[in-house]
Structure formats: structure tokens, C-alpha cells
Nucleic acid binder design. Structure first.
Lengths: 391, 391
DNA sequence: GCCGTATTGTTCACCACTCGAATTAAATCG
DNA sequence: CGATTTAATTCGAGTGGTGAACAATACGGC
């Protein structure tokens, strides 16, 4: 059994193997010498371990790199063919299944409708996954990451509640693992986005960042010191349901004036169609948010004003997160990023006015789709690359 | 050099030594067999390492413990004489210097006035510390923990700003280390309280807790997954300056309606004396908060009402922390805990009304003095016991 | 072209350290 | 008083990192 119960159950070699493999993934291409410097291990040790990793086909050796003087380094890459990850992104109307390589690049994906009843959905999903795997028999799939728009009890790996789906206490892990034989990681969508941003992409070195997902509701994924903040029950990140105004409109959660009542897509729609500042829960909208974005792009002043107002409210919550958590970076994810020229300055202005200390950078990170899919990949990778999230 | 760069620079043995020493501190008294079970190490390895630790006088062997069947275990204790910690708790008017054992028990302490100018203060403090050490020449002092009521840049180990003190960008570490030759750890007071609660006391197993310190202002210390949430700059935890009402009274930070404007000691005083709900910044009070507490205890209905109102506002912020961070425990620290029979239910009621998910336990943890001192001890111990914070 | 220098990567003997199994020690129970 | 159970120690074996020497490049100056 274990020597170093860092990730209990690992031997010393396992720890270092994970360390090096994780570093190769995060910093590729990278030379053995650099690995030795960055890990603090001896070059000899690094050589041994990388030799093993190449033998197991986890790593490939590429062309020689550049060096000012001396022998040129031989660069190491992650072998993207060695491990594939299945990602399942569950959304209220549509669920996306994707297969990706360990760099987070999506190779293929398909969509399926999200059934209303969780039982039906799980059965359908398992069938689709099995068909997907049969259709790609040569792929070595090492993990499945599942993201859901709701609270996940991470210890028990169960979906606790997803208001937008109307589901409560659903076991997604066991049935999928049984149907596919591949380990499943379940996570809240905003948390998955945060992990994805810290694992791949432009912000992989950020160790303190907050992701704000904006769509029907608002979710937050918090990474502090390179680790996800999950809270005791795994239900942290519900800042969307912090009240900005006690006397505000009713929210789907039953209370009043929640941040997401003011700053969600639906709120902007409501501001546009009814001139109201916030949307009463449950009222249907004639226009879609996409259409609103298009109108703003086409020069509709009232649409732009609605989006600008949404940015103002987003800024309020972002100011709260910035003052309370002091991240180095706040990422906004959602359809609304399409209108960043309008929304971005509005957020910036609103948040600046409400924050005493200098604000962190506030950056748009695409509509949710890609971020969530990359999140599922990061999740599926965790088993292979340790805690991932930088090394 | 290192094999396992967990805390870079440590060998395998060092890691396990730290692991076991930390576990003995946290779970003492404990048998070797229990250590083996809890670490996953072999009993033989544990025996070897504990033998070393006993030889180095870090650990002592006490009486035999109880067991239902079989040989009775020989219990191990931390040798409280081996390492002492100096704690320095800097407050606006008075600074406390204490010497404590690694269990957080204060052996002796003394107070000194806090000079207005940081330069003067540091000189005075260094003299006092040197005298303190000369007066106790036989104590092995392994670390100095310093807590300040302000933001600390943990990477640079500098006090960034302390509004209550009027200090900005002060180096407390280097001068004290130079004067005493003992390593110094600097930390924000609320963070130190959080570390103390997770290290000592009744809540040492809590891995997700939030400490709310209530005095002139409101500070929060967040521990998530057993680790302190510091934020990128080390300035996380400023939830006291999140605005509850945009149109609220001015706060010392320059913005309006901050949580601490409504829920600090001064706010309760103002509610009592002026009938106002919040205190305008900078206005002096005739009554002290202690006197207000005494009046409430003596049956003054208006005093009780002021405190109850303070609890109501405390509950609002606590609801925000509970929803956003989902800790298993929220600890309230400050003089206000003296009036817990009044304030506690008021907080509970207010927070419950503003939170959809079930609230974590909300517990009073004494006025700040003891908590902050134990926080300084926990800080000073970090060098010796690794990251501390549970094992 | 050749040699000094700088840097990468490999080989190998040594040894620290953990494991695992056997053994000793101590306590309770029938 | 022996059987059983749990605690702690002893010791041989093997894993695996270290460190130093060495091999392999590459470049620049002469």
C-alpha cells in the first residue's frame, strides 16, 4: 500500500509519474531538462519516468527544440491518441456528447434531446454512449465527464437538485459506469468550466479564478489556490442566489431579488420586452435571447440598452465576488459574451464603482457550449492526471 | 534534494515525518497503531518515525490507553515543552504578545500600546520581543505568528493596508526576524482565527468553515477543503465590504451600504444612541460596545433591540456566505458573542429567511482575543507542522 | 576545421526508506 | 492457563531516487 498518502493509495513512483505526466500535459512541449527543473527531481529520475511513459505510449517525443547554446532539447508531447475522454454536457433541452483528446480538443460530438424524466434520460444516454463507443472501437476511452446545471454532492457523486431540469437526487454515475465500464466524474457546469479554464486554454496558470456562467440562471465556479471550492456538501458556488435586494422580484428559488433574477438572460429579455428590470419567475418570453443579441448587433438601441443593463447587474455580483474572493481573473461564460462590446464595458464600469480594491481582469470566455465540453474533458482526465489543475 | 516535491525540498522521510507529527498534534493522544491506520503507512514505518520523533523530543510517550481486547496501546503526545510559539496580535489600540505551546495553550502574555506610526510600533515591538525572549531564556521558540487587522499580501509577507490602523504597505516580517532570529508568519486576523479553529479547538475536523469576525469592521476567514482561501493577492475575505444596499450609508472604504456598516459593533451602538440603523463613518460614539452589552444583560430593552437588529444584519451577510460557499460551519467571533442569547436566534432567523438550502451550524466562538492569539500560534506552527489545518 | 564551453540526456553504483512477514509483548476471555 | 486479539518491534528484501560521471550535441572563436 501507500508510502505517500498524497492521493492515498499511490506509491512514490506513482506520485512522481503523475507529477511529470501532469506537467507534460500542462506545459507541452517540454524537455526532460525543463521537467527536472520544474519538478525538482533529478534529471536521471525524469529520464527513467519519461522512458516509462513513452513505453506506455502516454508521451511521444517530437522534434528537437531551440536553445541558445548547447545541445538542443528533445521535446516531449502528450500522446493525444493514447487516451480519449467522453464528455456529456446535460442542458435543459439538449444534451451534447463529445469525444475529445487530453488537450481538450473535441474530435467529434453529437446531440440528443434531454428527456424530461431523469430515468428515461439516463436510459437514452446509456444507449447513445454504448452506440458511440461501438462506432469508435479503436479509441481508448479513459474517462467520462458529466456536467449538469445543478448542485452535485461530490462525495456521493449524485445530482442533488437541478431546478432548470426539475430533477432531484439523481444517480448519473452508477448507471453510466455500468453501461460503459468507464469511470464517470460528475460535476456542476460552472465548476467544470472553472476546471477547464484552469486546465486548458489561456488561463492555465491562474490559480485563483472565478467563472460566472450566465444563461437561464447564474452559476459560479471558484478556484482558489489551484483547487476547486466545493464546500462541505459540494454545493458551493450558488452566488447566483444571493439577494441583491430584499424587496426585489421573486426568484425560482422562492426568495426575492437574487442576483440571477436581475442578470440572467431572461432578465435582459424581460427588460427589453416589458421594460421591467427583472423577470418574474415562470413567465414565458416571446423572444429568445439569441434574437435579442442579434437585434443589438443590428443596431437596435433598446436591445443594446437591455444588454447594457444586464451588464450593470452582472457587475454588481462580480464586484461581490471580487471583493470577497480576490481572484486574479474573472471569466464570464454564456451567450451574453457575444455582445461583449456592449456588456463588457458595462460590467467593468458597474463593478469598478462597487469595488474599493483594484478589480481583477474580467474576461469573456465564449458561450457556454465549448467551455462546458472542455470542462467535461478536464473532469474525465482527473483520474489519469491527478488533481490536474496546473501542477 | 527532493524526491516528492509536495512541500518542495522535502525527502520522502520528511514528508512522512511531517504527516505523522501533524497527526499526533491534531489527534493526540494517539497510538502508533492508530497512526498507521490513519496514514496508511505500515506499523513498522510508524514505529521507526515515532522513535525518531521521541528521540528529537518532539513527542512523548504517555500512559497506556484503553482497548476492549488485546494489548493496550501506548499513547503518544506532542511534547509541549519542545516548541514554543510567540504570538503577536496587533489591534488598533493595544497589541498582545503571548507565548504558547503547540497545543495553542497560552503560557504567558503581556500587552503594549499600539503606536500610531508603524515605524515606531515595529521598533517598540522588537524591543519587547527581545526582552520577552531574554526573560524566558530556556524556552525553545520555533516561530512567531503575527496577526493584523488588515490585508496581507501573503506572497510578499507584507501588510498591504490596515484602515483601522491607518497603515499602508508595512513590512513587519523582516524587522522582527532580524531582531529575534525566529521565522515570522504574517496573517490577517480573520484568516488566523479560521486557521486556529481548524487547527485547535472543537472544530478541528471541519474542512470547510467560515469565520466571521465582528468588531469595528467585519472580516471573514474562509477555509475550503482544509485550506485557507487567500485569493490571488492574499486579500480575499473582504466580504465585509460587499454592499447590501446601494443607497445605504457611507462606509470607511468610500462606498455605500457595506455589510459592516450595518452589522459592526459601531452600527449597533449607533442604532442604540441615535436610533439610526447604521452609523455614518467617522462619527464618534459616547457609549462603548461593552457598555451596550452590559445594559442588554441588565435588561435594557432598547439595548437588546439594537443587538437583535445587529444580529439581523449579521444574518444577511451570513446567508450570503452560506449560499455562496456552503461551509459546514460558520463561526462568529467578537465581543457580540457575549450577547449570543439575543444575537444568535436573531442571526439564525434572518439567515434562514434568506437561504434556500439548509443553513450550516452557526456557532459563537468567543470574543476575538483568544481566537486571534490561538491564530498566531497556528501560524507560527505552520513551519513545523506543514500546512497544518487538519491532516 | 578544431577546440573550449554550455546544455541535454543516459548509465550505474549507492543508499535511504518503505514494505511485508514474522516475532515479541501485553491484555482479555473462557 | 492456554486461546485469541491487538500493539509494537525486528529484519530481510526490493523499490526507487540520488549524484556523479559520461555521452551526445550544438555553437562560437580562432
Amino acid at each position: 500500500m501507500p508510502a505517500i498518502p498524497i492521493t492515498a493509495g499511490d506509491s512514490v513512483r506513482d506520485v512522481n509519474r503523475h507529477l511529470i505526466l501532469g506537467l507534460i500535459r500542462a506545459r507541452q512541449p517540454i524537455s526532460r531538462a525543463d521537467l527536472a527543473r520544474q519538478t525538482g527531481l533529478q534529471p536521471s529520475t525524469v529520464s527513467l519516468i519519461t522512458e516509462q511513459l513513452i513505453g506506455q505510449r502516454w508521451v511521444t517525443e517530437g522534434a528537437a527544440g531551440q536553445a541558445a547554446r548547447g545541445r538542443k532539447p528533445r521535446l516531449l508531447y502528450l500522446n493525444v491518441e493514447r487516451a480519449r475522454i467522453l464528455g456529456v454536457d446535460v442542458r435543459p433541452t439538449v444534451t451534447t456528447i463529445a469525444i475529445a483528446d487530453p488537450n481538450g480538443r473535441v474530435i467529434a460530438y453529437e446531440r440528443m434531446p434531454t428527456a424530461r424524466l431523469p430515468g428515461t434520460f439516463v436510459r437514452n444516454l446509456c444507449r447513445r454512449l454504448q452506440a458511440f463507443l461501438r462506432a469508435h472501437p479503436r479509441l481508448v476511452c479513459e474517462g467520462i465527464g458529466v456536467t449538469v446545471p445543478g448542485g452535485v454532492d461530490h462525495a456521493r457523486q449524485r445530482l442533488v437538485s437541478a431546478p432548470n431540469l426539475g430533477w432531484r437526487d439523481v444517480d448519473l454515475k452508477a448507471p453510466i459506469e455500468q453501461a460503459t465500464g468507464i469511470p464517470v466524474e460528475l460535476e456542476n457546469a460552472a465548476n467544470a468550466c472553472a476546471i477547464a479554464e484552469a486546465s486548458f486554454g489561456n488561463h492555465r496558470d491562474a490559480r485563483d479564478l472565478v467563472v460566472v456562467t450566465v444563461s437561464e440562471g447564474i452559476g459560479t465556479g471558484i478556484i482558489s489556490g489551484g483547487r476547486l471550492v466545493r464546500g462541505a456538501s459540494g454545493l458551493a458556488g450558488e452566488f447566483g442566489h444571493v439577494s441583491l435586494d430584499e424587496r426585489g422580484p421573486l426568484c425560482s428559488c422562492g426568495r426575492r431579488g437574487c442576483w440571477e433574477v436581475y442578470a440572467s438572460n431572461a432578465a435582459a429579455l424581460s427588460a427589453y420586452t416589458h421594460g421591467a428590470r427583472a423577470v418574474p419567475a415562470g413567465r414565458a418570453q416571446a423572444l429568445t435571447f439569441d434574437q435579442l443579441l442579434t437585434r443589438a448587433e443590428q443596431g437596435d438601441g433598446r436591445a443594446a440598452a437591455a444588454l447594457s443593463g444586464m451588464g450593470d447587474y452582472l457587475g454588481r455580483g462580480i464586484a461581490m465576488l471580487a471583493t470577497g474572493l480576490a481572484p486574479s481573473l474573472i471569466l464570464v461564460v454564456g451567450e451574453v459574451t457575444r455582445a461583449w462590446p456592449i456588456v463588457g464595458p458595462s460590467i467593468e464600469k458597474s463593478a469598478t464603482a462597487r469595488s474599493s480594491s483594484p478589480l481583477p481582469r474580467i474576461v469573456p470566455a465564449g458561450d457556454g457550449a465549448e467551455a462546458r465540453l472542455r470542462g467535461t474533458v478536464a473532469l474525465g482526465l482527473q483520474k489519469q492526471f491527478g488533481t490536474a489543475i496546473v501542477a
